[in-house]
Nucleic acid binder design. Structure first.
Lengths: 233, 233
DNA sequence: CGGACATAAAAAGTCAGACTTATACGTCAC
DNA sequence: GTGACGTATAAGTCTGACTTTTTATGTCCG
């Protein structure tokens, strides 16, 4: 999923990216292009392309006579979906998950308010469909199906906000929600209260009630934060 | 500023990036690596590195036997600082400015609330210093100095939130604020009400009053949005 | 002993050319 | 019309030689 046959440099990135974001090469580490090329058994040209990509993510800096140095974490492009995926797959997954959930709690309520103002009839319908799907799969350990509708729901909200910056967070939200059910232990059925909130949110958007939509979303994201505190206090 | 001597491929990006984000090569356009290399008078290896970077930003997709095709705008990594800069420098600057301001209005209030809880004594002091600097330069067309303190103020808030995702938006906010005074016409001195809000926000953070900090920031960002509506309704 | 300056080495950067591989597209047979 | 097949095309890869920049070293002179 992450690396479709993007060629050799993609394969290198799949190994080197996680190695850097996981701290295996801590900030300040110096890598040599030639050595890396040998290590990965690729040509220097391929290795250079990979380094260029890492450089564009501000993960590393390449300087003559010095080598490729890993940049401090604070400078990384942490909004790059690829970086997010690498970090979620690595050691500081819990930390990253919390950061992203806080981000959600800031963005989604505002997005929902805007969605209530700008959603098309089609988007309203889709929203209702997702909410119903969540209800239908909220019992009996149908976690995968529930997740699918949950993700779709939030994607529609973000898209309907009409703000491109919000819309592009759809993948992030999907990643966070998926992780919750797939990586973290999730034996029980989803919280019925959360399901109800989604249904009411769909109604609020359809009713063009921006204030209520925003407030309901605040409750949803507050729940997500609370859930994190329970899992990893 | 954007391109420190990043080598030839950096120069190519500085031309090709804006050309794509500005719509000069609309989505679906097909470019050929060889032709581009000739056009920019660089070797294919350099051109390939540039393409890889554009690919990592999801601006283009490179496929065998087809070429390098420009991806639809909806797939671009719009959080990439480089992409943001390119777009702010191009034709849809107003649109991008609005998107970013809406993003600010979602993120900054929550960040301020967290800052009130987590700011160190040093950060509180820095915040007060910035606020005072804004006051001191709020009259007499000292726009550049005012801007400097304004940007610093918001950076400190975002950093003090303790959330890395928020912290990384410091550059974006800086870009938006700078643009407001430097690109958009800004004859008059800043709104005294806004200055007061910043002073009160610094106080709220120092007093650890998260609710008030959040509310004050909401007023600040609401003002920024309103300002946009006046300039480009 | 110490600072200025020249020198050398190291690593990234650049280029050119040959070769490989995947794939879109056209052709031909059925 | 449909399917199999061949071919042309453009990206992908590799290699080796060369250039450029930056840093470390070492020497000479004060």
């Amino acid at each position: 999923m992450s690396t479709r046959g993007r060629g050799l440099h993609g394969h290198v990135l799949d190994t080197l990216g996680p190695a850097i974001t996981s701290g295996e090469y801590p900030p300040g580490s110096v890598l040599r292009t030639d050595e890396l090329a040998q290590h990965f058994e690729v040509s220097r040209s391929v290795m250079r392309e990979a380094v260029r990509v890492l450089e564009s993510m501000h993960l590393v800096e390449s300087r003559r006579r010095v080598g490729v140095t890993v940049r401090p974490k604070a400078e990384w492009n942490v909004y790059d979906p690829q970086v997010i995926r690498w970090r979620l797959a690595g050691a500081d997954r819990p930390h990253q998950l919390r950061s992203l959930t806080v981000l959600r709690s800031a963005v989604e309520p505002v997005a929902a308010g805007l969605a209530a103002q700008h959603a098309t009839a089609e988007q309203c319908a889709e929203l209702t469909r997702c909410a119903l799907g969540m209800v239908a799969n909220s019992r009996g350990h149908r976690l995968e199906d529930y997740l699918f509708h949950d993700v779709s729901f939030h994607r529609v909200i973000l898209n309907a906000s009409g703000n491109e910056m919000f819309a592009r967070l759809g993948d992030v939200v999907a990643e966070v929600l998926s992780g919750r059910t797939r990586h973290e232990v999730m034996f029980e059925d989803p919280d019925p209260a959360a399901v109800t909130l989604h249904v009411r949110l769909a109604e609020a958007v359809r009713a063009r009630d921006a204030v209520r939509a925003e407030e309901l979303t605040r409750e949803i994201t507050a729940g997500a934060l609370q859930e994190l505190d329970i899992l990893a206090p």
